[in-house]
Design a protein around this nucleic acid. Structure first.
Length: 464
DNA sequence: ACCAGTTGTCATGTG
DNA sequence: ACCACATGACAACTG
């Protein structure tokens, strides 16, 4: 089996090499430098954008066919899991897209007979037992190109449409919607027959949260994974915005599958823990057993969030975990009083409600704490901004004060220079000074008396 | 293996 | 006394 795979890989490598050589030869002959198929891959231009404007992709049957959807919208064929069985061969699809693109955009740059020759290696294998499904897919496309070239060698658009029509005929295609699964996000197409755990793991990071009920665990793993893969975005059964009772598929699906036995063991353990209570008559013994069960459960905690769900199932509680937690007090009390519960059920239902309430309280408490923290951080930022503003204002005021002092000094000197005594002589600035009174009058005072009685008009010699 | 962050749970305090 | 809620502390889990 491994040898056959290696042979197929080598065969495909040789084919790709031939195609590349042919392209290189074409480049040399035409003197034009056409983008190589690999560069087309890296350019990540959706093939749908290459379609003529008159050809609406939405109205085309293309989108009805998962293979063509994958083909036309495939931008990163290198993402295909080449190590998975049969998918490495799909890597040449973008090459074929490239040829179709050249046909559609400028058929003169690539002689049609050359395309037929390029496509020749991809034609269906005369020995079908050597072909993989993916290789058949490539062959199918190249066959369509080749046939189209024969029938409609002068109309590239029709070539393309013929290819699409050929591959849209899903009646015999292994990639028809009825037997293939297509992931638009990951741009991959997988035949259902090849969906298995290892392939599914490629998709798991994109899958949403699922709630798995107990009877799903009884499904065969491959059947279950396929079923859940097809039902992505669908919430089954218990719906809870919190994680109570729900199981994250990514972490738990495989856990559920690989540890199916341990899961059952755990369920049985829980069931045993609480059903043991049914056989006990003394309340004290019941309480002790509940405590032991809780301790044991805590010690053997495998996953969080679904334990109460399992416990509720184990003891067949009449209310869902969601109702147990979210019902108003009156309704809850009425419900548990009307439903005749034994001691174990009563204890469990109280515990579930307490834990559920406390879980929500803890969540809101943490949210408040984070909000408070963010509020404090915002306050710190505001205070920093205000501090910066104050610092800027202080600097601006200091600058303005300096400028004002400078202006006053100049004005002082100017005024002092203009003052003359009765003989027309200037006053000595070392002996006299100007002083401004509170009423706005400027006085000339001798320096030795200025400080003694600044505002005494009797000392004034000159009023300016 | 280690670590930081997240989450569920329990114990305890408070109104 | 009882209840609901808040919160610190711890352990399990996760990436």
């Amino acid at each position: 089996m491994r040898e056959r795979t290696r042979e197929r890989d080598l065969k495909r490598e040789r084919e790709l090499e031939r195609i590349m050589q042919r392209l290189q030869k074409l480049d040399e002959e035409t003197g034009e430098c056409l983008p190589s198929p690999s560069s087309v891959n890296s350019q990540a231009v959706p093939f749908s954008e290459m379609l003529p404007s008159t050809m609406s992709i939405q109205s085309s049957p293309v989108t009805q066919n998962p293979l063509l959807s994958a083909l036309l919208f495939s931008q990163k064929p290198q993402k295909l899991p080449s190590q998975k069985q049969g998918f490495g061969e799909l890597a040449s699809l973008p090459d074929l897209q490239y040829y179709l693109d050249v046909l559609e955009s400028d058929s003169s740059s690539l002689p049609l007979e050359d395309i037929a020759e390029i496509c020749q290696p991809n034609l269906p294998d005369p020995h079908p037992e050597n072909s993989t499904d993916a290789f058949c897919c490539v062959s199918e496309l190249t066959q369509a190109i080749s046939d189209s070239l024969t029938c409609l060698p002068s109309d590239p658009v029709e070539v393309l449409e013929t290819c699409i029509q050929t591959l849209s005929d899903s009646s015999n295609s292994m990639y028809s919607p009825s037997n293939a699964v297509y992931s638009p996000e990951s741009e991959l197409i997988l035949p259902k027959s090849q969906i298995n755990d290892s392939v599914l793991s490629e998709f798991c990071s994109e899958l949403n949260t699922y709630t798995i009920n107990a009877d799903q665990l009884n499904m065969a793993p491959a059947q279950q994974t396929l079923s859940q893969f097809e039902e992505r975005h669908v919430m089954l059964g218990f719906d809870d915005s919190a994680s109570v009772g729900s199981v994250d598929l990514e972490t738990s699906l495989y856990e559920s599958l690989s540890n199916e036995q341990s899961d059952k063991d755990e369920l049985e353990s829980i069931q045993s823990d609480y059903t043991d209570l049914l056989s006990l008559s003394a309340d004290a013994m019941m309480y002790e057993t509940v405590t032991n069960a809780q301790e044991q459960t805590q010690k053997t905690r495998v996953r969080r969030g679904c334990r109460d769900e399992q416990r509720a199932q184990a003891l067949s509680l009449p209310l869902s975990v969601h109702d147990i937690i979210h019902l108003p007090v009156e309704a809850f009390n009425e419900a548990i009083s009307t439903c005749k519960l034994n001691h174990a059920q009563h204890t469990l239902i109280r515990d579930i409600r307490r834990r559920g309430k406390n879980k929500m309280a803890a969540q809101s408490c943490r949210k408040r704490k984070m909000d408070s923290l963010f509020g404090l951080e915002d306050e710190i930022e505001d205070l920093k901004r205000k501090k910066d503003q104050c610092m800027e204002e202080k600097e601006r005021n200091a600058r303005e004060l300096c400028e004002t002092k400078e202006k006053v000094g100049k004005l002082y000197n100017e005024v002092f220079r203009l003052l003359k005594d009765e003989h027309g002589n200037s006053y000595n600035p070392r002996e006299y000074k100007l002083q401004l009174s509170t009423d706005g009058t400027v006085y000339l005072l001798p320096r030795n008396t200025a400080h003694k009685n600044k505002m005494s008009t009797g000392d004034l010699n000159v009023a300016v």
